[in-house]
Amino acid sequence: MVEYRDQNAPPGGPYRWGMVIDLDRCTGCEACVVACHAENNIRISGEEEASKGRAVNWIRIERYWEGEYPNAQVKFMPVLCQHCGSAPCEPVCPVYASYHTPDGLNAQVYNRCVGVRYCGNNCPYTVRYFNWFEPHWDEPLNEQLNPDVTVRSVGVMEKCTFCVQRIRGAQQTAQKEGRRVKDGEVTPACVQSCPTEALVFGDRNDPNSRVSRLSKDDRGFGLLEELGTEPSITYLKRIK
């Protein structure tokens, strides 16, 4: 039917931001998790709330046990919003708080959200987090908050944005200089901090970007891609 066309695409067509996660490199050290907390003003839930399962980790390291002693094995899998090309969370939002940006981000507009939480249910990756209460920081922990990122209020859904504040910053610079964002010019906080370089970020529409090249790897697969979500994140299988 009527398809959406972006009027403001950069030279050379729109971006499609994506990530590659090499499970063979990921060691489960969780540096990404704290980096994300610091960058994105993620609330501290506290023991009480965490015990209700309400701890927020836009990126979380899922751990899976396989086998029994002495052949027990552990696998780590960083799971964050997959920024699906066809995201199940988007159409179910009655107010367009969850929608798809022209550059391939699965956006969550906090101020539009009324908190029906349907998107959270419909996300097969369970990477959407809800603000059950007004977030609170014990003074002066709040002085750390990143001014570029909204502090979410009570009753709204939140999730990984691929650090859109950084992407937009890089895009503005590039736009000023009349060029595209260069590969590696912008990285989300998790990618930046990852000690083993398991995470790589870039533009999937650029065939020469690291992300594009790595995602063609034989080890590549999309998490739950059989659901037709067209995830923007390619995982590279762990070699065992």
Binding site: E3, C84, G85, A87, C89, E90, S98, P102, E230
Partner: peptide, 9 residues
């Protein structure tokens, strides 16, 4: 027009 989840506008 806002794009959502592969659904047409």
């Amino acid at each position: 027009p806002i794009r959502t989840g592969g659904k047409p506008i």
